[in-house]
């Protein structure tokens, strides 16, 4: 049984379908990158899995349980976490408050201690307002916040979009470490080549459908994928 199974998923924000029938799985312990051109439906897919899309139909199952009709809170409770592209920390709350505010965490105090140990930069600035953190520190806090409730699947929406170029590599290294913490990753990312380089599998969306799906190394080596979706090697943003 896959951790996450998506079948025939359609949906959108209004009457127009942005997702036009998506079939995809995320296996336990893997990182799956979702790539594709702008408007292909990548972020919409991420929102649909979290329960944030106003209209969705089809099948989304988490650990075998159908969650399509479940609200966001229930999906969080089952072990799915979500890190939005922007606005992923509470700027006026302190670092520690950003972690304390996450609801439904058993032994929150112990969990905060674990996460501050895992992210030493945050431990140093535990009383600082999140709005005063650097871009890299802010992303660490966003990850720590999402990890608070001990999720088994983390959905990352363009995790490097708001980062300075110098911080991108360390961000991908951080994501690479998530499966070791027992967290599988569904990552939507513009920097497709770098994302695929740390992923087990990749999926390329086009027009709200899965155009290509397979091992990340295979996609990186695929001429058609490179030509149509991934950009040339070394190209800005690739």
């Amino acid at each position: 049984m896959s951790l996450l199974e998506i079948g025939g998923l359609v949906g959108g924000y209004g009457p127009v379908d942005i997702l036009a029938g998506i079939d995809l799985t995320v296996e336990a312990g893997e990182i799956l990158t979702v790539a594709g051109t702008n408007g292909a439906g990548k972020s919409t897919l991420a929102k649909a899995v979290m329960g944030l899309l106003p209209r969705a139909a089809g099948r989304i199952a988490f650990e075998g349980r159908d969650i399509l009709g479940e609200p966001v809170e229930a999906r969080l409770g089952l072990g799915i976490a979500y890190v939005p592209q922007v606005g992923n920390v509470f700027p006026s709350l302190s670092v520690v408050e950003n972690l304390q505010v996450v609801a439904g965490v058993s032994d929150a105090r112990g969990r905060i201690a674990e996460l501050l140990a895992a992210f030493p930069a945050l431990a140093e600035r535990r009383r600082a307002r999140a709005g005063s953190l650097s871009g890299g520190e802010r992303q660490q806090l966003a990850f720590a916040r999402a990890l608070m409730a001990r999720p088994r699947l983390m959905i990352l929406d363009e995790p490097t979009a708001a980062l300075a170029p110098a911080r991108v590599a360390e961000s991908f290294a951080r994501i690479r470490g998530l499966p070791a913490l027992g967290v599988s990753v569904l990552m939507v990312e513009q920097r497709a080549r770098q994302a695929l380089a740390i992923s087990d599998r990749g999926c390329i969306l086009d027009g709200g459908r899965v155009a290509m799906l397979g091992p990340a190394a295979g996609l990186l080596a695929d001429d058609r994928a490179a030509a149509l979706y991934l950009g040339q090697v070394g190209e800005a943003g690739a």
Partner: peptide, 23 residues
């Protein structure tokens, strides 16, 4: 208090509050 922290979180960002499990 916890509810006060949640109120300030919703004031900061209601969408992020929602995906943080705040009711």
């Amino acid at each position: 208090t916890s509810i006060g922290r949640q109120m300030r979180a919703v004031a900061d960002d209601p969408d992020l509050a929602r995906v943080s499990g705040i009711r």
